[in-house]
Structures are given as C-alpha cells and as structure tokens.
Design a protein around this nucleic acid. Sequence first.
DNA 1: CTTCGTAGCTGACAAATGTCATTCCGGCGA
DNA 2: TCGCCGGAATGACATTTGTCAGCTACGAAG
Lengths: 207, 207
Amino acid sequence: MTEPGTPIRVILADDELLLREAVMTLLALEDGITVLGTAATGAEAVELVRKARPDVAVLDLEMPTQDGIEAAAEIQLIAPGTRVVLLTRHARPAVLRRALDAGVSAFVTKATSVKELPSILRSVASGGRYVDGAVATAALSESNCPLTEREIDVLRESLDGATIRVIAERTHLAPGTVRNYISTAMTKLGAANRVQAARVAWNEGWI
Amino acid sequence: MTEPGTPIRVILADDELLLREAVMTLLALEDGITVLGTAATGAEAVELVRKARPDVAVLDLEMPTQDGIEAAAEIQLIAPGTRVVLLTRHARPAVLRRALDAGVSAFVTKATSVKELPSILRSVASGGRYVDGAVATAALSESNCPLTEREIDVLRESLDGATIRVIAERTHLAPGTVRNYISTAMTKLGAANRVQAARVAWNEGWI
DNA sequence: CTTCGTAGCTGACAAATGTCATTCCGGCGA
DNA sequence: TCGCCGGAATGACATTTGTCAGCTACGAAG
C-alpha cells in the first residue's frame, strides 16, 4: 500500500482537544509519520479525509455528529485507500464486531501506550490489521451473550428511559411483546427493571 | 509558594494510559516542570502524593477506586502544600462547585489546549487559581437550576435505575415522599419518567 | 406429515409508579 | 402574634410495568 521510505500520511479525530493535540504532537515527532490535520467531530473527520486523502485515519469512537464507526463506514465509501484505526475508551466486544463490519483496520483502546501507536500505524498502512489484545480475548470469551436479537433491540431502545409504548413504536412490535422481551431479558440478567437490565447489558458490551 | 527558578514538581493521574503518557511526555519537555510520576487510579494518586510531595497534582475527575474530587480532598489532608488541578471531560457546573469545596486550585476541561497547561500549572504553583472559562460562565448563568435540594438527591439516586423503595432507604425518606419529589422534578424537567428526568438533569449538570 | 422451537401476539393479574389533595410542622417576615 | 412557605409525610387513585399462561404462524428437523 505505502512504499517503504515514504512517510505515512495520517489524520487524527477526537473530540477532546487535550488528547488530540498531545497525541498529534507526539506522532508528528515520529520519523516516517506526517500528520495532515485533526478533526473534532465525525463530520469534520470525513471532510478532512475527502480533502487530504490520508493513508491512515485515527478516529475516536465517541464523537459528536457521527461516531467513529459511522465515520469509518463513510470513509470506506469516499476514500477506499484510507485505512481506519478506531480509538475507543472502553473495550466492548460488541463494538469491536460493529467496527470490523464497518471495515475498520485496527481497534485500539485508550489504555494503549503512545509508544505503540507508530508501529500500529505503520502496520495498518502496509495493509495489516490490529486488534487490542484485551478486547480480542474478551470478544472470544464473551461471545456467550445470553440475549436474543429482539431482546437486544428492545434493551437498546430502553437505554434512554423510553416508555414501553415508545419502544414498541420504535421497534415496530406490540407493547405486550416488548414487555415480554424485557421481562425475559431482566431474568436473564438478574435485573429488577428494564433500566438496570439495559445498564448491565451495556456494561457487558452486549448492546 | 514555589520560588522562581526552582522547577515545579508535578504528578499526573488519569485512568487512560494514552492521555496520561502523552500529556506527561509533553509536560516533561517543558522548561521548569518536573514530572515526578503518574497514577492510574485515585488511590494510586494519593499514595504517590504521600511519597513524592509534589507542588501540583493534576487529577482526572473520572478514575476508578476514588474520583478526582475524593482524591483531592484526601490530598488536602495529607499534603496541604500540594495544589490540585482537576481535569474533567465534561464541564458541569455542579461538579465545579463540589471541586471548589474540596479545595481544588484549578478546574480544567479536556477541551483545553496542552499549550495552556504549563502556564496554568505555574500559576497554581505560585498560589493562583484557575477555572476554565466556559465552565465559569456556565456556572454563573446556569445557576437557574429549577430543582430543590431533595429533588436533586432523589434524582441522583435514581440514575442507576434503583427502585423507589431503594431510593427511599438511601435518602432516609418515606417512599411516598420520594415519589412526590420525583413527580415534581419530572414536571419541572418535562420528563415522562424518573429515568428521563435523571438523564436531563445529568446532562444539564444539575446532579 | 408430525413435531418441535422460535418469533410474535394477547389477555389477565399483581406490583410498582406517577399524580393529586391534604396534613403537619418549623421557620420567617409582616 | 399571625400568616405564609417549604420540607416531609400520608392516602387514594389511575397508569404503567413486570409476570405468566396461552395462542398463532412458520420453518427446520424427524
């Protein structure tokens, strides 16, 4: 993909200026890496990729307007040559799966050392893939999510405290059916109500 | 507090290795600043302060075992000479108030530029105070929190989906009273249930 | 073809929740 | 001193929610 000797051209997107600047500065000091620019939102990142055509785009997962995965999917369309490195705060197996589906080349948590970043970027730029070790093992072992598809849908919709009627509308199900799914999910997760169930499932990375 | 010419001795605590390392590296490059060490949890930070006796301790708000404010309060006790700079992700006026009560000398968000950090540290080390501009104005203008003390207590307890009985026990109130407070809070915030009310209040920085 | 499992739905019931009117009590200003 | 207000509580009530049993439809396995 990138010939040896040619510097890797990188952009960096994160909504926290402190982290963005700090990492950018350190990456820029690195031999063989050129930082073309930074972005604070998903939309900005996509726009920057469109203009600058970097080899690698490092995207934070949690960003305003568009999260890292949505931005990654869009980047695949408009700049197939750009590899995406997804940066995330919490390592959640379900997110890893969505990220890989979106065509992300590397999955890195913020518990990674800055010193490892350059080699990850180089590896990705030359066509490699990288998945954070802890997340990878978690993804393998924690595939035993006890929830069914619909239970996950319903729980996800109830994360923001929506009422059952609203959840029913959003999932195109009957209210009674929603209550049944919530009920089974609650017993599976040992929760006292749907809010707690949603929290548990979220923490486990299942929704 | 610190004589001119003497380097400022700093420690840095944040649970994200990436940010911790990156900021530490950049601070260490700065003239007149010595980084004595870093910590990943509140407890580690307190322990590090006890041993190293830094001039300034930069603490992230969100950390395991002890959040930055709890750690700051403890540091005031064991090392009164150490000034605390609180670093936070989201600028929330209520948190600012709690932080100032805990004796924090500076309140900085992660939307701050790394370049501003050294001057903030210097100012704090010489006895000054600093509050992030956006947060300060927000704290002044957003003093119009419509909730009363008890409503805030009750909403805070219901953030994790606790049942009314549990909230009543935790707040030492009668269940009916809890429901009344929740009800008034919900109407004030225009929410359909206590979960939404808690979310709204949280986003506004009121709890 | 029958059986089984699963998705989806319904209805009934009990418990939890939200709403409202009302009461009691300790300040606090007029 | 009186009256008003905010905190706390109670009781009654309607609504929402969680539980449970049972129904239909449909595809896969037997």
